[in-house]
Design a protein around this nucleic acid. Structure first.
Lengths: 337, 337
DNA sequence: CGCTGGCACTCGAAAGTCCTGAGTGCCAAG
DNA sequence: CTTGGCACTCAGGACTTTCGAGTGCCAGCG
């Protein structure tokens, strides 16, 4: 069946190209992979693959290079995610288990992913949106200035300063504290915000109003949705060639967390690996980079995403395995916590 | 006085080289700066400067380039920090005033510095060591699991989870809370830690002991001393030449926060600008990068540092001005808070 | 004594030229 | 459908040439 062989050829091309970073020719191909046919045959297959758009040649008289479409085919149908070795699994577990709080988990994950894949790793901090209010603390810094601390079920702590228009006594503070806590504790933040707003009539006590406003703002604030940790930027140094076309735009994207979030994709899809190859992404400057990402989070629903960003010419099976493995471990840890 | 002119020549060389990124020759020098002498004279001066080690030529028959020693002289004696324009000052104030909490101040500062200098900016989060305890909050997540929140005068909030060996009732929790707060509030953390330790006899209540241990650990933990924000890495893309020699090691250093801290220097020196040029730093891989840094913090004493890292060939007067200006504004904000 | 113009010299960078060999497409035969 | 053969293409490396910015030195001048 020659159709099968063609795909084998495509796979071989992708693997060789990823390994060598150089266009691969028919001769080298038959040598390195036991294809059992002659170079001429492979050439015919390659011509066909090129017609179908899976590969291309940088210039006449050069070997072939996979196109985005070729990588897509490779990822979808020609390879399996290679499982992590036991040692790797153990390393992941050990490193992540040492984390002392949520932020630390995220930071360790980034480092880990970057090390495992030798790519740039990106981890989104868990979003607020699904979390519930665990506790609200009001601390009087001065009589007219409050520190408002919002503690969420995910372990996240949001803090805000409020300047009050009037001074506040200890008793009033205690009243206010229990008032807001009664309204909010246990609710998911969207509902908590609604409940809190309901506490204050249009022209209620200005102090209460100020505190509630700050809380509501902290709850609906998407700033923390946008928090992201990035690691492994130094890995970009590995491909100092193609600097302008690949490294520069990526380096810029890494600073723009909004862009990164968009790259990681929406967290709706649960724990499913997403691979976005080159031009498939929303940014044409990043047309030579790919993203491997997945959602993570406790239980079934994913509430944040993590992944890696690298050149389209990357080790997809390895990257996918690492991303999936790290996501699973992180999810498990969040489950326990 | 020919000594004076020599220094003028050195200054001109530095300025031109920084501006053009190319070795500067005698002819171009007299043209662009009104030196009032002939190229031949300048050549003599240049030969002398080269003898003294201030400049060097990449190869015979090329222009001159400043050495580290040349830059050092330039920074120390040949230039003044050019004050920021009113517009720039206003921009700094506006951006930083919008910050909502300590972390936000730091993050905004990094961005700001990176934008102003078009270099890589580094800001150390304020250290704990000088801060006092504002409040300790204990929140029961489950009967046997506590969230311990430590709120410091700098606005920093440290949180830890504690698993208890026994369940804890509401009353006991309240007692414990007031116990630790009485001991710690208002003390600088070192003293607070001592006081807390004094609360628990060798074989005291295991629950109290666990909580105190965690608090003490959080207070003495230097992890937060090492926290650092980095921004403007994309600016590295501007000098895609000298990639291997300059960008790669720097990119690696940016990931190693310990290295960055060392680069920023010790926070002992107060609000004094430090300029470290090339080989003067502790890392020889970073011999073609310079650091401009200063301490910042409320009041007289600096308790953290911020600065920029860039190529030795950088705009020192501008960078120094930006670093100083941002440090001042941040200090002022911390003063108010 | 220091500045200047003149001059021969150096040598890196840019441009041009040549050559090699990996790789191709096509074809005729098995 | 596969294969060996063959003519063809062309990027990249090696080599050469050219060009000119920049230098060091020297003799003369104020």
């Amino acid at each position: 069946m020659q159709e099968e062989r063609r795909l084998a050829v495509l796979r071989a091309i992708v693997e060789d190209y990823v390994a060598t970073e150089e266009p691969v020719g028919s001769k080298a191909l038959v040598e390195r992979h036991g294809l059992g046919v002659s170079p001429a045959t492979v050439r015919n297959d390659m011509a066909a693959l090129e017609d179908e758009g899976y590969i291309t040649q940088p210039h006449t008289s050069a070997g072939r290079v996979p196109t985005d479409k070729g990588y897509r085919m490779f990822v979808d149908r020609l390879t399996t995610i290679k499982p992590m070795s036991a040692a790797e699994k153990r390393a992941i577990a050990t490193i992540l288990d040492g984390a002392i709080d949520l932020d630390d988990v995220v930071q360790r994950s980034v480092r880990l992913l970057a090390q495992l894949t030798r790519q740039v790793a990106v981890v989104q901090y868990p979003t607020l949106s699904r979390s519930t209010v665990r506790h609200i603390e009001l601390v009087a810094l001065t009589p007219a200035r409050l520190l408002v601390v919002l503690i969420l079920s995910t372990g996240r702590v949001e803090q805000r300063l409020v300047d009050l228009s009037a001074e506040l006594g200890d008793d009033e503070l205690a009243d206010l504290r229990s008032l807001v806590n009664r309204a909010a504790i246990g609710e998911i933040i969207a509902d908590a915000a609604t409940a809190l707003r309901g506490l204050v009539p249009e022209e209620g006590a200005p102090v209460t109003r100020a505190v509630v406003d700050v809380l509501v703002e902290a709850m609906s604030d998407h700033r923390s949705d946008e928090r992201i940790a990035v690691g492994g930027a130094a890995n970009l140094a590995r491909f100092g060639d193609s600097f302008d076309s690949a490294v520069r735009p990526l380096l810029e994207a890494l600073e723009e967390h909004v862009v990164l979030l968009k790259l990681l994709g929406e967290a709706t899809s649960g724990e499913v690996l997403t691979v976005r190859i080159g031009h498939e992404g929303p940014y044409q400057e990043l047309s030579s980079t790919s993203v491997v990402a997945t959602g993570y989070g406790p239980g079934e629903e994913a509430f944040a995403r993590l992944g890696i960003v690298g050149p389209t010419r990357m080790d997809y099976p390895g990257s996918m395995a690492a991303v999936r493995a790290v996501a699973r471990y992180v999810s498990r840890i969040l489950d326990e916590a």
